[in-house]
C-alpha cells in the first residue's frame, strides 16, 4: 500500500557530514570508554599476577615493559586522561553548564589539550623516576 511515509526524506548518514570537533570528541569518548573497559581486564591480569607471587608479577611487569606493552599502556593512559577530562565536561553539561555551541567547541579543544598534556607529563615523570 503506497503511503506518504515511504517518500519521506531520510537523514543523511554519518559519513556524509564533515567531521566536527563536537562529533569527533563524542565518538572519541565512546571509543576511549570501550578501550578502557578492555584495559580493566589488563589491570585485573596485573593484580592477579601480583597476588600470585613475585615470579608471576615479574613476568607481568616484563610484558608491560615490552614494546607492545608500552604501546598499549600509552594508548590506555591517553584514553584514561581523555575519558576523565571529557567526563568532567559531560558532568558539567548534566548540571546545565557550558551548553552554548561556542563554549562546547572551546571546552572541546581544552579537553584535548589537557588530556594530551597530562599524558605527556605522566610519561615524562614516569621515565624520570624509573
Amino acid at each position: 500500500m503506497p503511503t506518504a511515509t515511504q517518500n519521506r526524506p531520510l537523514s543523511p548518514h554519518l559519513q556524509i557530514y564533515r567531521p566536527q570537533i563536537t562529533s569527533v570528541l563524542s565518538i572519541l569518548h565512546r571509543m576511549t570508554g570501550v578501550a578502557l573497559t578492555l584495559g580493566t581486564l589488563l589491570i585485573a591480569y596485573w593484580l592477579i599476577a601480583a597476588a600470585s607471587g613475585a615470579e608471576a608479577f615479574a613476568a607481568a611487569q616484563d610484558w608491560i615493559g615490552s614494546f607492545l606493552g608500552v604501546l598499549l599502556l600509552l594508548a590506555w593512559s591517553f584514553s584514561l586522561f581523555y575519558h576523565l577530562c571529557n567526563g568532567v565536561r559531560h558532568l558539567a553539561w548534566d548540571l546545565g553548564l557550558g551548553l552554548e555551541i561556542e563554549t562546547v567547541t572551546q571546552t572541546g579543544w581544552v579537553t584535548v589539550a589537557v588530556a594530551g598534556g597530562l599524558t605527556l607529563v605522566a610519561w615524562i615523570v614516569a621515565f624520570a623516576v624509573w
Binding site: A44, L47, A50, A51
Partner: peptide, 13 residues
C-alpha cells in the same frame, strides 16, 4: 568476574 578477581588479589597482597 574480573572485578571480583582484582579485588580478591588486592586483599591477598
Amino acid at each position: 568476574f574480573f572485578g571480583i578477581a582484582s579485588i580478591v588479589s588486592v586483599l591477598m597482597i
